[in-house]
Amino acid sequence: MADMRYPDFNIPIVAATKAPAIRCVDVTLRVKKKLVLDGVSFEIPAGSLAGLLGPNGAGKSSLMRILTGMFPPDSGRAELFCAPAGPERLGVLSFLPDRGQLPPYLGAGEWLRLAAGLYPDWSEARMEELIVKLDVDRGQRIGSMSRGQEARLQLLTCLSRQAPIIILDEPFAGVDMVSRESIAQAVVGELADGERTFLIATHDIREMENLFDRIVLIGEGRMLGCHDVEALRAGGRSVESCYRDVFA
């Protein structure tokens, strides 16, 4: 079989750190007449851990789907390392969909063996490390897992790749506290190399606010702010109070 991988899945990271990992310029999207995203613009520098915050229905998932190339924006630009996002850029990013599901008939181990073949940037060593950290049972069938167990397996799949951008859509939705903590821990562990950029959409501000170094706020499809978190704190505001100021 010819090599089906995209040639650019392994962007040289050193060169890339100079450019913003994610950049949106005036992104607009309509779904059947409804304006879902209305001129959203922001930048996430490489190596940071950014939070995408906003109430339900703000357009967070749609924005992430654009970044992951599920579909193009109606107008504006969504860029990953200065090149437009699209299905052909799936190699540079690792995506955890909101309430996504893996094939239920597979065992966790079977899925991971498959994933090692499916993802060209799979790291066996990282997977072994994360299996311990996230406490995943390889023999268990995915269909019989609890929500927390499946969420951890999905995150494990995302993080075992070496893609420089990681996009997580609601990694904590419906997940128990212990799973949340181990998920947050795993995310931090991955970030410390400074080689990867995270964009995480979440409602769980308290669990995550100490992790973010940058937050992007959107509501009703519009951009409502993009802040450096330490700068916010230096001004005496927390992520939570900032969120309240904007949305409450």
């Binding site: 931090v188 562990g189 978190v229």
Partner: peptide, 11 residues
């Protein structure tokens, strides 16, 4: 890395 992970804060 260890400290950030166990305290769950940004490195």
């Amino acid at each position: 890395r260890e400290a950030a992970a166990s305290l769950r804060v940004n490195p």
